[in-house]
């Protein structure tokens, strides 16, 4: 099964699909830094280079602005030539993400979800899997996206999954929209259930006992959201800013105090002695808190330990680049499970194929044996494959092998 990964970033989706046994034949993204990391970890592949005019625009604006139809004219034929069986991808979700600035439907990046859809419906592979934030479902963009997919004959599975059900200790909700040509809605649901992991990992499972009992991740918002987590809990969503915010002091919130008390861990409060029991409102220096470095955050995002974040040759990505790649990536364990679900669906489908009475004349098999010198195993294979092929063309009630062959093609 050939897979094309759109908006591939550093390769989280591709990696999981590869582990599930798929062949990644193309990976596309706007960010050269991310593509370099993708290439370093998928040496067999060589991601498609960004068109030059696009690279220019990207450098100039540091952001891809006009996803005009000109892009599609360039990309659709290129991707079509790769003849993928599956198109996967997580179009940029920032316009709809609850983290950071939200432009929603009016954000120009929201056009990239539509670009994914238009490319997919034009190339028209049998399957596609799109990943995004659940908030997308409430948008006008999503309405358009699903309408386009339906118009081109895809049955849709629309499902919000939690990454901790699929091997990553993050409590991260993701929308999976999966399409299959000619299927009924919900076609992948039971297989997504089957591939759910039994064990929901916690922070400690990934970082080990050595990390200590606490994990600090500065809350995004002012207010009551805590920033301390026990390492026997799951961790909050890793975003591009997860490692930041340790230079300025942190003011403890009541929810933090509850976590600190539950592990009985001492935290140094500015201007107080070591025996002081921290209270909400106390200021602590954030410099020495157990934040987790880049490597640890990548592990929490379910990347393998040997993932190369600094490709040889070329410019090394900055720390911020890498954090953005990790934050934007589809957790590989999730994409692997999605790929496995698709595999199970296909196996189930094959088993369902009805037995068609073998309408071929017995002389055919004699001919195979005597004239073509086929052995019994090979004759049996022809019988089986012929029956399956004929099941596909059976509704057309054709009698001649010539017509059947044409219909099959």
């Amino acid at each position: 099964m050939k897979v094309v990964d759109l908006f591939c970033g550093c390769g989280g989706f591709s990696h999981g699909m590869r582990k599930a046994g798929y062949n990644i034949v193309g990976a596309f993204d706007f960010k050269p830094e991310a593509l370099a990391v993708h290439a370093a970890n998928n040496p067999a592949l060589g991601p498609s280079p960004m068109p030059k005019w696009m690279a220019h625009r990207y450098r100039k604006k540091r952001e891809f602005v006009h996803a005009d139809l000109g892009n599609l004219l360039q990309w659709v034929p290129e991707i079509s030539q790769l003849k993928p069986d599956v198109i996967v991808g997580g179009p940029p979700c920032q316009p709809f993400s609850p983290f950071g600035r939200r432009g929603g439907d009016n954000d120009e990046k929201s056009l990239l979800s539509l670009a994914f859809t238009i490319i997919t419906t034009s190339v028209h592979p049998r399957f596609f899997i799109m990943e995004n934030v659940p908030e997308l479902q409430k948008t006008e963009t999503f309405r358009k996206v699903t309408e386009l997919f339906r118009n081109s004959g895809y049955g849709l599975t629309q499902r919000v999954v939690t990454t901790s059900d699929y091997g990553s200790p993050q409590n991260r909700n993701r929308l999976i929209l999966a399409g299959c040509v000619g299927e009924t809605d919900g076609w992948l649901n039971e297989y997504l259930d089957q591939t759910r992991h039994e064990h929901k990992p916690v922070i400690r499972d990934v970082l080990g006992e050595g990390f200590g009992p606490l994990f600090f991740r500065r809350g995004h918002y002012a207010g009551q959201r805590r920033s301390f987590f026990r390492t026997d809990e799951r961790c909050p969503t890793i975003t591009s800013t997860t490692g930041r915010g340790t230079r300025s002091p942190y003011v403890l919130r009541p929810a933090d105090i509850r976590v600190l008390r539950s592990v009985g861990e001492g935290i140094t409060v500015l201007g107080k002695g070591p025996d002081y029991v921290p209270q909400a409102g106390d200021t602590i220096p954030a410099r020495n808190l157990p934040v987790g470095g880049q490597e640890e955050l990548a592990l929490l995002a379910s990347f393998p330990a040997n993932w190369k974040w600094a490709p040889e040759g070329g410019r090394a990505p900055t720390k911020a680049d890498v954090m953005q790649m990790i934050g934007n990536a589809v957790p590989p364990t999730l994409s692997e499970a999605v790929g496995e679900s698709l595999r199970l669906y296909r196996i189930g489908k094959m088993e369902e194929t009805p037995d068609v009475p073998d309408s071929i004349h017995p002389l055919f098999y004699e001919w195979l044996r005597d004239d073509k010198a086929f052995d019994e195993t090979r004759i049996e294979s022809v019988r089986r494959h012929g029956a399956r092929a004929r099941a596909l063309v059976a509704p057309r009630a054709l009698s001649m092998p010539e017509q059947e062959l044409k219909a099959f093609d």
Binding site: L363, W367, L368, D371, H385, G386, A389, L392, E404
Partner: peptide, 18 residues
Amino acid sequence: DQAAMREAMYLAYEWSQA
């Protein structure tokens, strides 16, 4: 798999022409 199915169809066609 698809190739095997096509081959089976093709063999039947070839036989019908023989």
